[in-house]
């Protein structure tokens, strides 16, 4: 019970921690006070509890594939929010944004963190709820939860300070790259969920690296959390992964174009930060 609680909690915590760290770095670069993260975490916890308590019923939807569809939906919404977020980030790194745009920017951050927590937290809540019914498992599970969460949060903290420690020009670039990876990862997972639900057709396997780097190993879990590593991804997943990353790149370009366009319209100097 110990080891699987470590793996389970670690995986879910790390994914959320990476997102939070990167978004906190962006907030900091833009001088946004970190109060939003409290709202995001609170909303995420509430969402996770609701999701966990209704998981059994949600699973029965759409002919017993409701869980996959909901997960895919959440993942796609996260990608959408990240896309809008990056466009605005790209815009505000060049020109001053309006109050309205700043509000959308913060809303996107809150939405991304709380949605990611809803999906990942619900799994943890279900697991802990299951364990609490069996007294003999409580101690190893709680110990494992502590270790898994400790490793995940530590990785997030070091990532946060690592990004902040980068030269100011590189921090946003690295942050955006990480978000692009997360977006690709979520896109690939969403496709996997929909394939599992048989809403999308099966496609051939792209490669099989399960012999060299099994998904179940520690390195496999780490690579999964950062890059969405899978030993046997399907072709559709690969396409989705690239598309998810391209979305982020494209939206950064959209933000850049909007900034250039805006600068041309406005007298120089007034808009420049």
């Amino acid at each position: 019970m110990f080891l699987n609680s470590v793996i389970l909690i670690f995986q879910e915590t790390l994914e959320a921690a990476i997102l939070m760290s990167v978004l906190l770095v962006f907030a900091r670069i833009n001088g946004i006070r970190p109060t939003w993260i409290i709202f995001a975490i609170a909303a995420g916890l509430v969402g996770a509890l609701i999701f966990a308590f209704n998981m059994a019923d949600i699973s029965d939807w759409f002919d017993y594939v409701g869980q996959e569809v909901m997960n895919a939906l959440i993942q796609l919404i996260i990608i959408l929010c990240l896309t809008v977020f990056i466009a605005l980030q790209s815009l505000r790194s060049r020109v001053t944004v309006s109050r309205h745009q700043n509000l959308i920017y913060i809303t996107c951050m809150v939405a991304v963190v709380s949605l990611a927590m809803t999906r990942e937290g619900s799994e943890i809540f279900i697991y802990i709820g299951m364990v609490l019914q069996q007294p003999e498992y409580i101690r190893p599970t709680l110990t494992g939860t502590g270790i898994g969460a400790g490793i995940g949060i530590s990785c997030g903290t070091l990532l946060y300070y690592g990004l902040l420690g980068l030269p100011p020009r590189w921090a946003p670039v690295c942050g955006a790259t990480l978000l692009a990876l997360v977006s690709g990862n979520f896109a690939s997972q969403a496709i996997l969920n929909l394939t599992q639900a048989d809403w999308l057709p099966y496609t051939k396997i792209l490669w099989d690296s399960s012999v060299w780097l099994p998904e179940g190993s520690l390195q496999g879990h780490l690579l999964f959390a950062f890059f969405g590593y899978e030993a046997t991804p399907s072709i559709l997943q690969g396409i989705a992964y690239i598309a998810g990353m391209l979305f982020i790149g494209l939206s950064a370009y959209v933000g850049y174009r909007a900034a250039v366009h805006g600068k041309k319209l406005q007298p120089r100097g007034e808009l420049v930060k």
Partner: peptide, 25 residues
């Protein structure tokens, strides 16, 4: 970069936790 104290405490604790816990595993 914010408070030196928070930075030191957070990064030190994170590093210690990480290595301790991985070693424990």
């Amino acid at each position: 970069m914010g408070s030196i104290r928070v930075f030191l405490i957070a990064t030190m604790l994170a590093t210690m936790t990480l290595f301790n816990f991985v070693a424990t595993l």
